[in-house]
Nucleic acid binder design. Structure first.
Lengths: 349, 349
DNA sequence: GTCAAGCGTGAAACCGCTCCCGTACGTGAA
DNA sequence: TTCACGTACGGGAGCGGTTTCACGCTTGAC
């Protein structure tokens, strides 16, 4: 009992050589008659080339590795949706190799992917800390790499990011129009190594945009109203405690957070103390994670095209693979302000 | 310039045959001296077997396919964390092949995985509708399959599920202890095909447990307080409208939902109408998605060991692969009640 | 001393596909 | 007619591992 047809069997039935069958499948020289005959046999035998053998023969892995840091687990779906769409739409579809979703991604795992040539390409998404040596070794191994990152201090890799400055500007204009003048910004921190964190570049850009837009109307955010904490719900809680201690007349009437998790932490904490949102304070987040629309009041936030970014990242990796060249392009994606109920006109004093 | 060492080069340097190198790597007959010599050469040349070649030679794909339906994108992280832990912990680590995260998973994609032998194993997670023919064809192709599903009407595949009845009982006891006597249950629906839905088995089991626990105290849930809607935020919103219309004295003092998304939809809707939770109504969800702890008040819910379930699913697939036999085991995982602020004592009337 | 059993090793087949190269044929130009 | 060239196809090497098989050596039981 033969378990499965292989290319040789197809060739026998069609009375041609393996080479010809291969050409029919992959599109090479083949006369119409032969092509028709072979195609018919393929149909009849329900033949499908064995992917592993094909990859082996082509000297590739047929996989793209995907690395992400995602403690809250809110990102994955969006980015993956894009990646998946891109990969499956191509008949030469490469699979998403695997992913790392621990709090801090494990460089050892990724290194082994490179060493064992498990992947042809790599996509790093929102990893606070990129190991430069890791990316370099990937490049040396001929592995195309795309980074979803605000940091563009890399050579030879494609970089994708959202227009954070534009996002900040949009938020600034929006809050100004609502009458807000005392605005605070709570940015996030990116991981530098296991224990150290630094001001996140994403957040810095968002703050820059925010400041720019407000400055155009003569409004300035005082240094005392700018703070950078870890990208985590707890940071929102912590900032809420500070905010609650401020005198009513001096407390910011609007707080812009570096991500939704912090914003939601802030909201629930002040709500638990009886503060009404947006009557007493307006809140803006970033990212539009699923939770943002599930709370009451819904969180006004900035939506990024994460799905589109994931899709493009894969396209870049595939293209870099085909051309056997590594590109160092930078792609910036537009964002959109999603207005919900957590923002309102500034209260009359 | 040779790009990379292969097994033949290692063999040359160590003055042994390829076979011996292979045996040293995979643990076969080899004298201590030879083993040491070969190991040293491997170190020196930084040799790592090429995964694709190995898989090809072993006649396998080296991949496990992962299929999930996840519109809200809240599940993936939890299950994947477990899968990833299991796969990377094994040196024979298989990669997560790919995943489908559209609203309704695409059977065509999975079929092509099977046809092209892209995967050795398949894990289906929380897919409302399993295509029986798909699973059967996978079995015939010798692909080990694990289902994360409450439905055990399948043969030859491993099934994993949470103890939904136990979960329902725990919720029932808890609410009874808080003094609740008028309790409603809003279950979910699973997809049967593109347009049809049926009462979800998960929800039915949860309701069974809930009813059992309450019945032991002489409390009965009237039929009119049981409803099955689609597993979606909107269903929570819809139920909230119905609830708001009920007379205070007749409205349930506690509502148990089939999942967190519906519970959160209910909460935000009644909150927007000024209803205080849990003072006026207690709310219980299921699943403990990230959002549950981000809202105010925090949602009391039931946590499932999704990470553990994912991990076990992979173990089962791997084991089925090694033994070349398909097992039909059923695994039930314990759940835990997570009490937050959305539940409280029944209000004095 | 003989024989069987087991260990340690090398040679070579094998997995299924791609692709290089050689050949045969037909066509058009010199 | 001859030659060059492009098209169509077959033969077979090659990809890098694993595994089977054969063979030599050592050991122990009789």
């Amino acid at each position: 009992m033969k378990s499965r047809a292989d290319i040789a069997e197809v060739a026998r039935h069609a009375r041609v050589s393996k080479s010809t069958v291969s050409r029919v499948i992959n599109g090479g020289y083949a006369s119409p008659e032969v092509r028709a005959r072979v195609t018919k046999v393929i149909q009849k035998l329900a033949y499908t080339p064995w992917t592993t053998a094909r990859n082996f023969s082509l000297g590739r892995a047929g996989c793209v590795g995907f690395v992400i840091e995602d403690t809250q687990g809110q990102w994955i779906a969006q980015i993956l949706a894009g990646i998946e769409a891109e990969l499956t739409s191509k008949h030469i579809s490469l699979l998403v190799g695997s992913l790392v979703i621990r709090e801090h991604y494990d460089a050892t795992t990724v290194t082994s992917w490179v060493r064992e040539r498990r992947v042809d390409g790599l996509v790093f998404a929102r990893c606070g800390k990129f190991e430069r040596s890791l990316i370099d070794s990937a490049r040396r191994a001929g592995i195309a790499t795309a980074l979803i990152s605000p940091d563009d201090d890399f050579t030879g890799v494609d970089i994708l990011r959202s227009d954070n400055v534009g996002a900040g500007r949009a938020v600034g204009q929006y809050l100004f129009d609502l009458g807000h003048r005392r605005i605070a910004f709570v940015g996030g921190q990116a991981r530098v190594n296991a224990t150290t964190f630094r001001e996140s570049i994403d957040s810095r850009h968002r703050l820059d945009g925010l400041s720019q837009a407000l400055a155009e109307h003569g409004v300035k955010i005082p240094e005392s109203s700018i703070v950078f904490l870890r990208y985590h719900v707890d940071s929102g809680v912590e900032y809420a405690r500070r905010w609650l201690k401020l005198a009513r007349a001096r407390a910011p009437t609007a707080v812009v957070f570096g991500n939704d998790a912090m914003a939601l932490g802030f909201m629930r904490t002040v709500q638990s103390q009886g503060v009404r949102i947006p009557d007493e304070v307006s809140v803006v987040g970033f990212d539009d994670i699923p939770s943002a629309s599930l709370v009451w009041p819904g969180l006004t936030t900035v939506r990024q095209e994460m799905s589109k970014i994931g899709e493009t990242a894969c396209q870049l990796v595939r293209r870099a693979l085909e051309r056997k060249s590594v590109g160092g392009s930078v792609h910036q994606f537009p964002v959109s302000l999603v207005v919900r109920e957590s923002t309102g006109r500034v209260p009359n004093e």
